[in-house]
Each structure stands twice: as C-alpha cells, then as structure tokens.
C-alpha cells in the first residue's frame, strides 16, 4: 500500500495527506489510535453499565466483538496488518492490549483463588481472544465473530470462576445491559 492508494480511496489530494501526516507510517499509527480508542470507549460503556464483574466482562467482550463486526476494515488494520507494519505499529498493538488487562484483573477479587492466579493470566487471556479474532479476520469471516461471544466469555472467565460458573455466565439471560450492548 502506498500514499497514492490512501489518497485515492480517501478522495483527497496528495497535498492534503501531507498536511495531516508526514508519512504512511504516521497515518497508520493514527488509524490504530482512532480505532482502538473507539473500541475501548464502547467496551468501557458496556462494561460500566453492569455491577457484577463476570457480566461486565461479558458485556465488554460483546461490545468489542460488535465493534469488530461493524468495522471489519479498521479491525483488520489494527489486529492483522498492524503485526506486519513495523515496530511502532507492533508496539502500539501490544500496548493497546494492555488496556484490557485492568478490566480482567478485577476478577482476582471475586475469584476464590484470586491470590494464586499466575501473574501473566490477563495477558494470556487477551492474547487468546485477539488470536481468535485474528484468525477470523484473516479468513475474511467477520460475520462469524458475534457467535463466538459465549465461547470467548467462557474461555476468559474459567481461570477465575471455574468452567461451570463461567459457562453459566456465558449463556445466562440478562435483562438490560447485554442486549443493549449487542444491539448497539
């Protein structure tokens, strides 16, 4: 991809591009920042609408998957192309995953064995979720993403709550919050 490709798609002049960005790389980083903050905003809003941590995780993940499906091109840029777009893009990709760590870490307070959980658990859970989404996005099957929600919720909650309780949260009917997040 070249700057020429970008300005053609954007329908703007080459000059305009360089008034905003000094290079393709800078434009790429701005795209990552834009998409990741938009996605995080949705996650925080959805998770914040609920009280109990397991349901907050479910709502937050749901909002994230919804964003990915609504913005497949942006998501592909941030979750697939970013990995091959040079060190700055990879660093941003890594750092943006860290934003999710704090949401998951709260689970240690509600887990019966929270104090014994591995230090790197949240990093691994988020890495696993991102890898599943990477797979679906490279296979160009974003439409298959929303149906992954129960599986991903169960995967993310099992280390904290055990498989049984995690499964219940993944499939339970919750009036209000979740439905709003999925529809939104």
């Amino acid at each position: 991809m070249t700057v020429a490709d970008i300005v053609k798609r954007a329908g703007i002049a080459r000059n305009t591009f360089y008034e905003n960005f000094s290079s393709k790389e800078e434009c790429f980083l701005a795209t990552q920042e834009f998409a990741m903050s938009a996605a995080l905003e949705r996650v925080v809003a959805a998770a914040g609408s609920l009280d109990e941590w397991p349901f907050r995780v479910r709502a937050g993940l749901g909002a994230f998957l919804d964003y990915v499906v609504e913005e497949p091109a942006l998501s592909r840029t941030c979750m697939v192309e970013a990995l091959s777009a040079g060190p700055a893009a990879v660093r941003y990709y890594e750092e943006s995953q860290q934003a999710f760590v704090s949401l998951f870490r709260l689970g240690r307070d509600v887990s019966p064995h929270g104090a014994d959980l591995p230090e790197t658990l949240e990093e691994a859970i988020i890495g696993g979720v991102f890898w599943i989404l990477y797979q679906r996005l490279t296979a160009s099957r974003p439409e298959a993403i929303p149906e992954l929600l129960p599986e991903l919720v169960e995967f993310a909650l099992t280390p904290y709550l055990g498989a049984e309780a995690a499964g219940e949260v993944a499939t339970a009917e919750i009036p209000g919050g979740i439905e709003t997040a999925s529809a939104g």
């Binding site: 990093e123 890495g127 979720v129 991102f130 890898w131 990477y134 797979q135 995967f155």
Partner: peptide, 8 residues
C-alpha cells in the same frame, strides 16, 4: 485460544 494466548 489457549495456543494464541501462549504464543502472545
């Protein structure tokens, strides 16, 4: 997901 988490 487990493999993806491990590799990440």
């Amino acid at each position: 997901a487990l493999v993806g988490g491990m590799v990440s």
